[in-house]
């Protein structure tokens, strides 16, 4: 049986496993701590969710994840992903199963949270360049009547394309903006970690 807690564990572990990769990406255009920060964040989250019931509801779980990341990440990803998880937790309140429409609403709330916090928009070489295309792809998939897992597959594919797109653009937000044109050719670490999470969720649910 798939549970929210197990799904979250898989997603967090995927990020922890990519620690060096994410840090290498961030060393090229940022302050070089994205992988370390995210791994520390999810390790702290794991400790917090270990004490929760195995069948804990998704809202409580996501709230715990959000607060856990906020209190332990240390870099910009903490407030950004923390806000994203907190906002998503508000959308699924009272639900025991997540359909594609709810999943997209959660993703959209997360995107809105990231935008409120970071004041960024699409095309600025941030995590939004993976997440907004993912949401758009999900919307099309839902309208085409696809299953939940198929919708998520399309979202993952769009996010992966989004990561590739970040290689072609100049960073105007965050530490990478100091590099201006020199940021071209490098993929965005935040867009990458967002995609890692979506991929892990898809692999778990598939």
């Amino acid at each position: 049986m798939t549970t929210a807690k197990e799904a979250l564990r898989v997603v967090g572990q995927a990020v922890i496993d990519k620690k060096s990769y994410l840090t290498d990406l961030d060393q090229a255009i940022g302050d070089g701590d994205h992988g370390i920060n995210m791994a520390r964040g999810f390790e702290s989250v794991f400790k917090k969710i270990a004490v929760l019931d195995d069948n804990i509801d998704l809202t409580t779980l996501l709230k715990t994840v959000g607060m856990g990341l906020i209190s332990s990440v240390g870099g910009a990803a903490g407030p950004l992903y923390g806000t994203a998880f907190l906002r998503a937790s508000g959308v699924c309140a009272g639900k025991t199963e997540i359909d594609a429409v709810t999943a997209k609403a959660m993703l959209d709330a997360a995107i809105k949270g990231i935008q409120d916090r970071g004041k960024a928009k699409k095309g600025e070489k941030t995590m939004l360049d993976a997440l907004i295309p993912a949401s758009e792809a999900m919307d099309i998939a839902i309208k085409a009547g696809k299953t939940e897992v198929e919708c998520l597959a399309d979202a993952v594919q769009a996010a992966q394309k989004g990561v590739e797109y970040t290689k072609t653009i100049i960073a105007t937000k965050g530490r990478a903006s100091y590099l201006a044109e020199r940021s071209i050719g490098h993929q965005d670490p935040g867009a990458t970690s967002s995609t890692v999470m979506l991929e892990a969720l898809y692999n778990y649910l598939e």
Partner: peptide, 8 residues
């Protein structure tokens, strides 16, 4: 005490 920021 490391480099970073802590909302709490």
């Amino acid at each position: 005490g490391d480099i970073g920021s802590d909302p709490m």
